[in-house]
């Protein structure tokens, strides 16, 4: 269905010319341009604020370009800003997030792939019910499981650290990744697995040699989706970690909320940018796949 975004012709292309003109190109472009400015404004504000010295921020307009460009705020946010009592900047938390996101993405994508394969190509009685169980997990309001999860992580000795967060993100990520892969594999013909069976390939061989090589696009979708979700997560981070073990979103929130004295807006914005850059980069590089992830569960396809 993501293809629907890029390939088919716009509806307007089939409408006769005079009607299109009657609607007026201006009335189309003007609102679109205004909206684009509104959407870009916060990003612009974040960038320019992060590049300004503090005095210019308190003296000048928040939206204008910086008169003097300085990277001090970035440096401070990265390695000096205080989070609680520790003044280490975001760097260690950035590393925490990386340590959390990489294994969680790999594990949840891998498990989702094999689940999707089983639920489409090795259907067993009750497979649909299993899929339904997993699907509801995508829409779980996580508040409903916070307390038991906190207790369970404690029992497992995973409380307060990155491994615990990896476990949580994998557990709830499986629901999404299984959905992605199932919907993708449904469109692969069953004859493909049948042919491989006649060729003598078994369960794992078919998965590894026949199915996985055809699923590069959905693997990318799944990785990107999981990466953005897990990197941007705040609820699990703030609930299940503390102090130096927090992911970057928690640290960012602390920097912004806890600072005393004259508020360093430029450092706040630089910190927000640092937290946003990885997902923004992914979005710029692979936006097409990002859209596909967003809409995967939304429209039938």
């Amino acid at each position: 269905m993501a293809n629907a975004l890029s390939q088919p012709k716009p509806m307007a292309e089939v409408l006769p010319r005079q009607n299109r003109i009657r609607l007026g190109r201006l009335f189309i472009y003007a609102p679109l341009a205004v909206m684009a400015v509104l959407y870009l404004m916060p990003l612009w504000v974040m960038v320019v604020t992060s590049l300004k010295p503090l005095d210019e921020i308190y003296g000048g307009s928040f939206i204008g370009p910086p008169q003097t460009i300085t990277l001090d705020a970035w440096r401070s946010a990265w390695s000096q800003a205080c989070i609680g009592t520790e003044c280490t900047g975001l760097r260690p938390y950035f590393v925490n997030s990386l340590l959390m996101v990489v294994p969680a993405v790999v594990l949840s994508t891998g498990i989702g792939a094999i689940n999707g394969y089983i639920l489409t190509k090795w259907r067993f009685p009750g497979a649909n019910f299993v899929f339904g169980l997993l699907l509801f997990g995508c829409f779980l309001p996580y508040q409903a499981i916070l307390i038991p999860m906190a207790r369970t992580l404690g029992l497992l000795g995973l409380a307060g650290g990155i491994p615990g967060l990896v476990f949580v993100h994998v557990a709830y990520g499986i629901c999404f990744t299984t959905l992605f892969f199932r919907n993708y594999f449904v469109s692969l013909p069953d004859e493909l697995t049948k042919a491989a069976m006649v060729d003598g390939a078994g369960f794992f061989r078919i998965f590894w040699s026949v199915i996985l090589p055809t699923s590069i696009p959905i693997i990318v979708v799944s990785c990107i989706w999981q990466f953005t979700q897990i990197w941007n997560d705040f609820l699990f981070g703030v609930s299940f970690t503390s102090g130096g073990n927090s992911p970057i979103t928690v640290a960012l929130n602390n920097i912004v909320n806890v600072t005393t004295g004259r508020k360093q807006y430029n450092v706040d914005m630089a910190a927000a940018m640092i937290a946003a850059i990885p997902t923004l980069l992914v979005y710029i590089v692979a936006g097409r796949y990002f859209v596909r992830g967003l809409t995967a569960g939304a429209v039938k396809g």
């Binding site: 975004l5 679109l32 909206m35 684009a36 959407y39 870009l40 404004m41 916060p42 990003l43 504000v45 974040m46 604020t49 921020i57 308190y58 928040f62 953005t228 990197w231 941007n232 997560d233 705040f234 979103t249 960012l252 929130n253 912004v256 807006y265 706040d268 914005m269 910190a271 927000a272 937290a275 946003a276 997902t279 923004l280 992914v282 979005y283 710029i284 936006g287 990002f290 859209v291 967003l294």
Partner: peptide, 28 residues
């Protein structure tokens, strides 16, 4: 344009909140 309208979705709500808190700050 599509990319512009959609990029906020790639951000963490914490980042969004931080940015808008600054934008809507009555003092500055």
């Amino acid at each position: 344009l599509r990319a512009v309208y959609l990029y906020p979705m790639a951000l963490s709500f914490i980042v969004t909140g931080t940015a808008w808190k600054w934008i809507m700050n009555p003092g500055l």
